[in-house]
Design a binder for these strands. Sequence first.
DNA 1: AATGAATGAGCCTTCATTCAT
DNA 2: CATGAATGAAGGCTCATTCAT
Lengths: 205, 205, 205, 205
Amino acid sequence: MNDKFFDLKKEKQDKMINGAMQVFALKGYKLASTDDMVKVAGVSKGLWFHYFVNKAGLYTFIADYCVKYLNMELAVNLSADKDDYFDILYIVEETKASVAKIYPFVPLMIQAMEDEKDEEILEVTKSRITPYTEKVNEALERFSNENLREEVSREMLDMTVGYTLKGIREKAYSDGEFDSDKYLLAIREYFEMMKKIVYTRKADR
Amino acid sequence: MNDKFFDLKKEKQDKMINGAMQVFALKGYKLASTDDMVKVAGVSKGLWFHYFVNKAGLYTFIADYCVKYLNMELAVNLSADKDDYFDILYIVEETKASVAKIYPFVPLMIQAMEDEKDEEILEVTKSRITPYTEKVNEALERFSNENLREEVSREMLDMTVGYTLKGIREKAYSDGEFDSDKYLLAIREYFEMMKKIVYTRKADR
Amino acid sequence: MNDKFFDLKKEKQDKMINGAMQVFALKGYKLASTDDMVKVAGVSKGLWFHYFVNKAGLYTFIADYCVKYLNMELAVNLSADKDDYFDILYIVEETKASVAKIYPFVPLMIQAMEDEKDEEILEVTKSRITPYTEKVNEALERFSNENLREEVSREMLDMTVGYTLKGIREKAYSDGEFDSDKYLLAIREYFEMMKKIVYTRKADR
Amino acid sequence: MNDKFFDLKKEKQDKMINGAMQVFALKGYKLASTDDMVKVAGVSKGLWFHYFVNKAGLYTFIADYCVKYLNMELAVNLSADKDDYFDILYIVEETKASVAKIYPFVPLMIQAMEDEKDEEILEVTKSRITPYTEKVNEALERFSNENLREEVSREMLDMTVGYTLKGIREKAYSDGEFDSDKYLLAIREYFEMMKKIVYTRKADR
DNA sequence: AATGAATGAGCCTTCATTCAT
DNA sequence: CATGAATGAAGGCTCATTCAT
């Protein structure tokens, strides 16, 4: 990319970042079109290429930006003393929701990166998503499975919680705009229920 | 569409149906390409258009076919005496798995229809998926929420189970082919855990 | 390229070959545009890519075709008993002129390949032109420099004759169409003069 | 163009003139890009258009400048007493080589103008090159064809010498920079040979 | 009926040109 | 005066769709 992008007014940078992120997050790499971005960000076709060389370069930049920004925030929020499974995950989602105040499509973009199937961009996607995944998994390791009822395997818990969060996330964007509050509320309700049914009595607060 | 399609040898019909369904299910409406179908079904480009007029027509036909076939099977399997939440859902998935013996991509196609975002085909998709959703919901109404622990709301259960099944389904296709047994096993394990933690003692068998 | 190109009617093959060759020969690799070829050959934009993948692939095919065709003809015409400098070169040009009956832009295309400066296609160009150059040089080796007046160095003769032929060639296309007869006449006149002034009396017939 | 260009420091004027001339001479009108000129001359994109309105305007100015400057020098060097064909031509090339001390691409630019094929600029090119051609032809008229061996027609001599000079010229730029000495040496050698073989004994000095 | 050659609208990308600073 | 960010028309290439065989 062309580093002069960062010399632009922050406002315009963000307009472009948000525009590209929105289109990539909603449509995926292949179906994201320059014309869409022109419409969404109100910035001409040529300018995207002036700063980002080509579509793959733009995607790479956006993917990078998302993960770096999010991980930075997570580093602050995910203090080492948190050791409850759902509390940790809630902080992660809370962080995403807070990042979404400035970059509304970050939560969906992260999702889209994990789901991306286009071979042309797969390498990029996977390499950029890993640092985020690792950061979260690292934190989750602090949780002791002994707090789980014996009927509940950690593996299955990860699975169902992962898929459910993904579902809630996509639903949060279903009307076009991301409603941060609705999103966190849905998660809180879900997590509260889960705590009650998957923890041993002792762990269930 | 051109009804003469049904005069073709059943074998060829199915080769075309499966080919189109595979491509639509794996790639979605917009990214599904004529060339992909030619390769997968071994049927010439022109023939698709001869029978189905255009891409939208083909998609409509496949969507229709999926739902009708599945609902037919469900009508047989979903006997009115089943009233357990997970048993009903299991039968639904079992039915899909059995349909997949003949049309391997039906489970994923149903999923793809629910996830489809392309505006050009949205109307079609939504209208075709409804009959299936309704049939399942109808059956689920026979389940009494009183069997659920009070901490568990029916709404939240529907949500998490729905999203989790979706996840398991997509994973079952992750290596390209649908593994019916692995799919049903994963669901069974998940449902067994869920039964233990969401039912009241009484309902928990 | 797609070998099915050769299944087309010879007439259409030649229309496409001539069209592409004309545009490449007159404009060079970079400035040759698909639209030009559409206009000249009356064949749609997409078809070029159907058979030749991309612009570089088309250029490679045309370059190859030119040289192979020409060398084949030269193999017949350049009998091993010819040993006069200008006679050999005349046969070479005569051969080009005869090839031009079917592919009018071969002489100019060969020239264009030698002059091509676009880096993207340089490798292709140089590798394809070499076999032709070698064939001609091989034949010219049969000429003994002892036939030249001592004031005339072989090196300088090659230079001035080479540049002059190039000039005559370009002029022959200056009005759009290649006039084979005018071309050969100009060369004959030039060669006759040269023979008289560069050969020793003995060699001068 | 904007005449305030001449208010710039001579140094900057020449940087721009040389930059534009280099790019036009090496690439031709169509392939000469604004970005190339920015790189070569180190002058911003906008400034070119500020002074020269558009690409055609710039080309026109450069073409004009070349010919006027060269003709001015020729007026000084081409004294009316010179009447030998090759001496006159040598003076012309010597003049170009001397102009190249300040504007290194003038010889190639003159050449490029004669070869230019882009229709958009053809009119300009032809009209600007004429004054130069005429000046040279005028001088050459002082040469009497009676000095030529009868085998040598004046027409053919003009042709072969013209094309050969063109070839030598292009070769002189083949490594990117114009080597004035090598250029003049090559011409001298060529002319010496030619004098020996095209002049009658009497004229051959 | 069946094929795949042929078409052209649409998308990515380049580049002359404009314009705010 | 100078800059280079910004624009949009044009060129390469893809792909749904048409059509001659």
